[in-house]
Structure formats: structure tokens, C-alpha cells
Simulated assay, not measured.
Amino acid sequence: MASSINGRNASEIFQGQTLLYKHLFAHVDSKCLKCIVELGIPDIIHNHGQPITLPELASILQIPPAKVSQVQSLMRYLAHNGFFERVTIHEKEAYALTAASELLVKSSELSLAPMVEYILDTTISGSFHQLKKWVHEEDLTLFEISLGSHLWDFLNRNPAYNKSFNEAMASDSQMLNLALRDCKLVFEGLESIVDVGGGTGATAKIICEAFPDLKCIVFDRPQVVENLSGSNNLTYVGGDMFKSIPKACAVLFKMILHNWSDEDCRKILENCKEAISSKSKTGKVIVIDVVINEKKDEHEITRLKLLMDLNMACLLNGKERREEDWKKLFVEAGFQSYKISPLTGYLSLIEIYP
């Protein structure tokens, strides 16, 4: 008879150990991403024009001979996890870019390298060492515990981090180029739109290019937009979305509402209703955000959404929401109806009507 401990057989215990160790060393995954972005390895392979062998990579990086085998371990691990593809060229093993590592090429139009650099900065990511303290603090976020202030105050006081944050958000916005090609009907017929929390205008510029007759307003903190120049159909306005939102036919939020509590979101949405109600009878609010759907989503998509929910809860007192959570917010803010459509792998597009 197989031995057991606490009613579990050896196989179950070893599976538990494997899961435990997988998460115990999971922090190494993000550090590996940070490393290859800092070394510029995706750029090197891209500029090489074809898959690159380890000796070629070591030569370009000027890696000490004694370190080459260790770098091979790095590349082999990342290849196993889908960031590089191991191929054979002239009977030699070489590494090619995958869809994931192509997003880390800094010169690429769709580069997410700035997101990696911001998120994995030691000051930002180090906040998670305070999780135990965060659990026992009634209202404080991880950032307030580790940085001494809310994220937005920290960014206002630290121009370098503010620049890094805006570059990260702008890089993420470029991904919308792909998504918006299939949902142009959402913006057709609108005369004006205000992008709330629009940063440096990456998303608004994409919309302006697709709809040159649509007037776009980027609305963000004064410190973000004060030195930015607009164009014929793009303007920048500084302000506070909790006080008021510029008038427009539509109001856009890209990954903004998940930063805030339900109470804060209700206030923001109420201001949206005021902004669009007198401007257009067909006005609406457009939300690009996460909708958790554990019953329909693939396991890994749900894992990402729940991970982002935890991230928002810890860092900003925000949250990712299920459809019933979103609906409750819309109704309490005075909206009559809404429609949810898929947008990207993990994001949805929500249209809310007054």
C-alpha cells in the first residue's frame, strides 16, 4: 500500500512541491525579461536579420568566455517559455524571435520594452516586498507603504519616473493599432471624443489618424500634458476627472477605471454623464479594460486577469471587474445600457449609454 501523509499520497505531495517551487522561483521570470531588454538581445537578433547562434550573440555582447555557458542557460530557459525559438542553421543551434520577443524590440512600432523597464524597476517592483504589512494596513496601498505616497503623487514629484510611466503607457497604447482596425464602427459618427487619462496622446493619435474629422481631446494631470503640442484635431487639456470632464460626444477610458475603487469610479462615470448628456443625444462612454469571465476564458487568460486584479488591489486600491461588477457601476452612475465586445487577448471594449 502506498504511503500517505495527511491523507495525500506521495504523487500528490510531489505535485504540490512542484507547484510551490514554480511560484517560489517565479520572480526569476520577470528578472530574465528585464535582463534581455537591458542587454538588447531582442534588438540584436532583429538587427542580425536571421536566427543568431550563441557564439555570435556572445561576441556582440562581449560576454567573457567563462560566462557563455551560463548565458546559454538563460537563453534556453527563455526559449522553453516561448520568448525565443531554438532552430538549426548550418547544423548549429540558433535563436530566433517569437511573437513575444518581437514585442521587446525597442525599434519596433509595437515595442513593449518601456513597459518592462517601468514595471520591473526595482523601486516600483520592490513594493511587493511589503505585502505582509499591506495586509494589516486598513487603507494604505503598497505604494503608500513603500514610496511614502500614492502613485500619482510620487510620479508628480519624480519627473524621471513620470516619464518612464508615460512611455510605458504609450507603448501599451500602440497595441490598440491592431485592435482598432476591427472596431472602427465604435468611433464612426462621433464628432468629438475626450480620452481621459490619455497620457501623452498615444491612443488619441491612433484614433485621429483613423478618423481625421474626429476632434480628440487628451485629458490628464496638468503635469502630464503641460508641454505637449496638439494638431488640427488633437488638443491637450489638464485637469482633474473627479471634478469635471471636458464636453464631448464620447468619453474614452483605456485601462483607467481599474485603477480606482467602485466609489471613485461612480464619481468619474457621473462626471462622464454630465460631459456627454448635453453634447450629443447619441453620446456614450467607451471603456477599454479587463472583464473577468472565468467560465468562458481560457485558464491562462483568467490567470492573467486575476493577477492584474491582485496587482491593482495591492498597488492602487483598484480592481479588475466581472460583468456584474461593471453593470452595477453603470446603473449606480445613472447609465441605461451597455455592450461588451472582445478587443484583444485579455481586454474588452465596453460601450456605455446614458
Score class of each variant (00 low, 15 high):
Thr122Ser: 14
Asn6Cys: 03
Leu343Ala: 05
Cys35Glu: 10
Leu54Gly: 00
Leu151Thr: 02
Asp213Arg: 11
Asn156Ala: 12
Phe128Leu: 11
Asp325Val: 05
Leu252Glu: 01
Ile44Trp: 05
Phe242Asp: 05
Phe335Met: 13
Gly345Glu: 12
Asp172Met: 01
Ser146Thr: 12
Gly238Leu: 01
Glu191Leu: 12
Leu343Asp: 03
Leu180Trp: 07
Thr122Asp: 15
Met1Ser: 12
Asn293Arg: 09
Lys243Asp: 10
Ala94Thr: 11
His27Gln: 13
Arg181Cys: 09
Ala10Arg: 11
Gln174Glu: 13
Ser69Arg: 14
Leu61Glu: 02
Glu323Met: 12
Phe165Pro: 00
Leu306Gln: 10
Leu176His: 11
Glu191Met: 14
Asp240Asn: 15
Thr88Ser: 13
Leu252Pro: 00
Ser192Glu: 08
Leu310Trp: 08
Lys284Arg: 15
Ile288Ala: 05
Val28Leu: 15
Asp121Ala: 14
Glu226Met: 10
Thr98Gly: 02
Gly199Arg: 00
Ile13Asn: 00
His90Cys: 13
Glu117Phe: 07
Tyr21Arg: 12
Ala100Glu: 14
Ala2Gln: 13
Val105Asp: 05
Ile63Lys: 09
Cys314Pro: 00
Leu315Arg: 04
Asp220Ala: 10
Ile193His: 02
Thr282Glu: 14
Val285Asp: 03
Gly198Tyr: 06
Gly16Thr: 03
Glu38Gly: 01
Leu33Cys: 11
Thr53Asp: 08
Ser73Ile: 09
Ser337Met: 11
Lys279Gln: 10
Asn227Leu: 13
Ile286Glu: 07
Gly199Leu: 00
His27Ile: 13
Asp172Lys: 08
Phe335Cys: 07
Lys92Ala: 08
Ser73Asn: 14
Ser59Lys: 05
Ser261Asp: 10
Leu257Pro: 00
Met175Leu: 15
Ile124Gln: 10
Phe25Trp: 11
Thr344Asp: 15
Leu178Met: 08
Ala79Tyr: 06
Thr344Ser: 14
Glu56Met: 06
Gln50Lys: 14
Pro246Trp: 02
Ala94Trp: 13
Cys314His: 06
Asp182Met: 02
Ala113Pro: 12
Leu329Thr: 08
Lys296Cys: 06
His258Gly: 02
Asp289Val: 06
Ser59Leu: 05
Thr200Val: 11
Leu310Cys: 12
Ala210Ile: 11
Ala210Cys: 05
Ser229Asp: 01
Val331Gly: 08
Ala94Cys: 15
Asp182Thr: 06
Ala160Tyr: 09
Glu270Leu: 14
Val285Ser: 06
Met308Trp: 15
Pro246Ala: 02
Lys267Trp: 04
Asp289Trp: 04
Asn293Trp: 03
Pro222Ile: 07
Leu316Phe: 15
Ala313Pro: 00
Asn81His: 12
Ile44Gln: 02
Lys31Phe: 11
Thr141Phe: 06
Pro42Gly: 02
Asn158Met: 06
Asn259Cys: 12
Leu185Glu: 10
Thr53Cys: 08
Lys267Tyr: 07
Gly198Ile: 07
Gln336Thr: 11
Ser59His: 08
Leu120Met: 12
His48Ser: 03
Gln174Ser: 09
Leu304Cys: 00
Ile5Asp: 05
Gly40Ile: 14
Lys339Trp: 06
Asn271Trp: 04
Ala248Lys: 01
Arg266Cys: 04
Glu167Arg: 08
Gly238Trp: 00
Leu57Ala: 08
Ala202Arg: 05
Tyr353Gly: 09
Thr122Ile: 11
Gln130Thr: 11
Glu38His: 07
Leu147Pro: 03
Ser192Ile: 02
Ile119Met: 09
Tyr21Asn: 09
Lys205Leu: 14
Lys305Cys: 07
Leu178His: 13
Pro114Phe: 03
